[in-house]
């Protein structure tokens, strides 16, 4: 299974060159780039852990790439995404976000159905990986 969150998940995994070009696009727009990681890829898990603060005022993508390399070294077996934040009035939110790292194996999600009144169903989605304790979810 391949999680398709983020802007470029239907393309082959981006190379570092491609990632840094996207980062440069964001920096040139004046957006702050943020690195986040998680081992719970539930589609509504909004708050991934932050790798440091969003990087404000960087002129060049190499600075972000340096942090990304470090983050990947520490969390090679987790999902890592880059997101860029636009503080402009009327947006003040994320402008782009895309995955830059994924675990080797992605076991995907269980869809749990609970029968309710009438023919209605209540649905719950859980990542199979989330059955294991946090921090050990994608160990081999």
């Amino acid at each position: 299974m391949r999680i398709t969150q983020g802007c470029f998940s239907f393309l082959p995994d981006l190379t570092d060159g491609q990632i840094s070009r996207q980062v440069q696009y964001c920096l040139d727009k004046g957006w702050a780039v943020n690195i986040e990681f998680t081992d719970d890829p539930h589609p509504r898990n909004t708050f991934w852990d932050m790798w440091g603060l969003p990087m404000f005022d960087l002129p060049d993508a190499a600075g972000v790439m340096m942090e990304l390399a470090e983050c990947r070294r520490v969390y090679a077996d987790r999902y890592i995404r880059l997101s860029a934040f636009d503080s402009g009035h009327g947006w003040e939110s994320v402008k782009i976000s895309f995955l830059v790292n994924r675990p080797k194996e992605e076991p995907g999600f269980r869809l749990h159905r609970e029968e309710a009144a009438g023919r209605a169903l209540r649905y719950t989605t859980t990542a199979y990986a989330a059955d294991r304790p946090e921090g050990r979810r994608y160990e081999g």
Partner: peptide
């Protein structure tokens, strides 16, 4: 380390 890296990140490309 974070201080030095912060400066290095800002200096990248220059």
């Amino acid at each position: 380390a974070p201080k030095t890296k912060e400066i290095l990140k800002k200096a990248m490309g220059g």
